[in-house]
């Protein structure tokens, strides 16, 4: 995808897989209603990083951004409540690299992904499947479904927006096989 800059690729591959860690940490740093916003703000800082390829540990990098943002917010706040900080074991900003399991668990569970797909409205679901799973071109999908290309485009956009939203919120199971491992297994079999 030529429209992805190097920093976007880095962000998708190195930062997003740890989204569960970030969300858990955010829930400890700020009030529950502000957690998602803290994560998104930290993402926005991270994706603006000028030397992203020099960052040894992107996970620790984003965690540190989050912590500093939380400091700023708390210093501005009129009153800070500490209830959500009772469990502070997560304050180990973890400079060590996460183990392989942690990376796997950052991926959505396969079963959950299928569920998310099933929850899409019929037309966006059909378009997403044809485009990304069957690899059909938008103009061919338009012909197959008897729609205009721009309508296909709208359905694809709608489906992807719903999926992307749900993935930010989807709980990642602590146990179970991560999707990338399943995927590798299937690929090995089919090769």
């Amino acid at each position: 995808m030529t429209w992805l800059r190097d920093v976007d690729r880095w962000f998708i591959d190195e930062v997003l897989p740890h989204r569960q860690t970030f969300r858990r940490q955010a829930a400890r740093l700020v009030a529950p209603g502000d957690a998602e916003d803290l994560v998104q703000e930290a993402y926005a800082r991270a994706i603006n990083a000028s030397h992203h390829r020099d960052i040894d540990n992107p996970r620790a990098f984003v965690l540190t951004i989050m912590r500093n943002l939380a400091f700023e917010r708390h210093r501005r706040a009129s009153v800070v409540r500490f209830e959500h900080l009772a469990d502070l074991d997560a304050m180990d900003i973890a400079d060590s690299a996460p183990d392989q399991f942690a990376i796997l668990s950052g991926h959505l569970e396969l079963k959950r992904l299928i569920e998310l797909m099933d929850q899409l409205p019929p037309q966006p679901r059909a378009v997403v499947k044809m485009r990304r799973i069957e690899g059909m071109l938008p103009k061919d999908i338009a012909v197959r479904l008897g729609l205009s290309v721009s309508t296909v485009e709208k359905h694809l956009a709608k489906g992807l927006a719903i999926l992307a939203h749900a993935m930010q919120e989807a709980p990642v199971k602590a146990d179970g096989v991560g999707i990338s491992r399943l995927w590798q297994r299937h690929r090995q079999r089919s090769n």
């Binding site: 995808m1 992805l4 920093v7 976007d8 962000f11 998708i12 997003l16 998104q40 993402y43 926005a44 994706i47 603006n48 991926h107 959505l108 396969l110 992904l113 299928i114 797909m117 997403v128 990304r132 799973i133 992807l160 927006a161 999926l163 992307a164 993935m167 930010q168 999707i179 990338s180 995927w183």
Partner: peptide, 18 residues
Amino acid sequence: AVAFAQVVDALEQVERLR
């Protein structure tokens, strides 16, 4: 940029369903 990256990520995860 973040939202766009998240959407691309969703797209790539769907691809795994192949």
